[in-house]
């Protein structure tokens, strides 16, 4: 195959690195951008640059934000003593969408996984402890990590670490998704839900 434009080829190569984008899709995206007027393409380019230049992690909870602290941490109404511990910024988005949680967050930035050489010192455990000892008035930690082996081990690790500090520790319930019919739930989820059943 004869390349007719190295510039195009370079763009395809970059686009193909994005998650979920294969070489074919990258080609289509690049061709689309070539055909577009200059204005929207520049806007896209600028927004991408801004992603790296402007976005930073919140100095308190470490979710992604534009300023020094994120709007959640900056909002005095949300300093209610509750902190929800999550793995990634996307989990903050997921819980925020519920509109039910009125406290603050703490983004660990990963979970403990020896196979990937990730220990407690590689995720934001120190920062969490500093917040508990600090002047935020934290009274309850809600652990909302994924229910896989690594999430469970991290939950247990934090539980051991934080229990002596006089903070209430809770974890989100596992079970049946809303709107799902019992007969279609996979057995493994259902048996976890049975094991974690609650009284009225």
């Amino acid at each position: 195959m004869q390349l007719t434009s190295e510039t195009l080829e370079a763009a395809i190569e970059q686009l193909a690195k994005l998650p979920g984008v294969g070489r074919k899709s990258a080609q289509r995206l690049a061709m689309f951008l070539v055909k577009q007027p200059e204005e929207p393409v520049l806007r896209l380019a600028q927004s991408l640059i801004a992603l790296k230049r402007t976005i930073r992690s919140c100095s308190v909870c470490h979710t992604i934000t534009d300023g020094e602290t994120c709007p959640i941490c900056a909002n005095p109404k949300r300093a209610n003593g509750m902190v929800c511990v999550v793995e990634e910024p996307k989990d903050v988005y997921a819980i925020e969408k519920t509109g039910e949680f009125k406290g603050r967050y703490h983004v660990l930035g990963g979970v403990i996984s020896p196979l990937e050489n990730i220990g407690p010192e590689d995720i934001r455990v120190k920062e969490l402890l500093a917040r508990i000892h600090g002047d935020e008035g934290i009274t309850e930690l809600i652990l909302a990590l994924n229910p896989d082996a690594e999430g469970e081990a991290t939950t247990y690790y934090l539980h051991k670490l934080v229990s002596p500090l006089g903070v209430t520790l809770t974890r989100i319930a596992h079970g049946i998704p809303m709107g799902a019919e019992l007969e279609y739930i996979d057995e493994a989820t259902l048996s976890k839900a049975l094991a974690g059943r609650r009284g009225f």
């Binding site: 196979l115 220990g119 082996a149 690594e150 081990a153 247990y156 690790y157 051991k160």
Partner: peptide, 27 residues
């Protein structure tokens, strides 16, 4: 596998396993 990894790392480096081994033990 996760637990074995912690034990193996410690054995190779001749040191006690990392403190998070407790969490894996419980699980």
């Amino acid at each position: 596998r996760q637990r074995n990894r912690l034990l193996m790392q410690a054995a190779l480096q001749h040191r006690p396993p990392a403190p998070e081994l407790d969490a894996w033990n419980d699980l």
